[in-house]
């Protein structure tokens, strides 16, 4: 449990970061979100760090990714090698934002969903998991996985 997502203390420190920005609405069409959130430009290097970070994306807790300096990757989700070749940036964006729109039964958290829709969120975490900028950074990174 220790390594999953974050220690409560960490969350308290990080939550205000996301709280600063207002939730930006987005629109999905044909299983994709074509436009970058808030028109923001992503950065692949930052995205790579977010994907590996326990406190932020923590994608590697479920997915195998080409990030060898972190030895412990989860096996419960499909490996993401080559995902940038399989899916477009818009398709990747929707999967990061809210995978439930593709598979309502999925375990994958929605990283940028309207926080008003959470059930019993902890008050320290009543925000989106990632900021809009972080989502764009992650998408920019995923696109490079070819």
């Amino acid at each position: 449990m220790k390594y999953l997502f974050s220690l409560p203390l960490f969350c308290c420190l990080l939550a205000p970061l996301a709280a600063q920005e207002a939730y930006l609405p987005w629109r999905a069409e044909n299983f994709a979100i074509a436009a970058p959130l808030g028109g923001l430009q992503g950065d692949a290097a930052r995205g790579r760090a977010i994907v590996a970070s326990r406190e932020r994306g923590n994608c590697i807790s479920c997915h195998l990714l080409p990030i060898p300096e972190h030895p412990m990757h989860g096996t419960l989700a499909p490996p993401l090698f080559g995902v940038g070749a399989r899916l477009s940036a818009g398709e990747l964006r929707l999967r990061v934002v809210d995978e439930k729109l593709i598979n309502p039964e999925t375990i994958m958290p929605a990283f940028y969903r309207d926080p008003a829709r959470y059930h019993r969120p902890h008050p320290d975490h009543a925000t989106t998991i990632l900021t809009a900028q972080e989502v764009e950074d992650v998408v920019a990174y995923l696109v490079t996985l070819r």
Partner: peptide, 13 residues
Amino acid sequence: TRIGQLDMSCHHC
């Protein structure tokens, strides 16, 4: 029941 920001249930894991 899915709960919290991570929106998972005990059942999932």
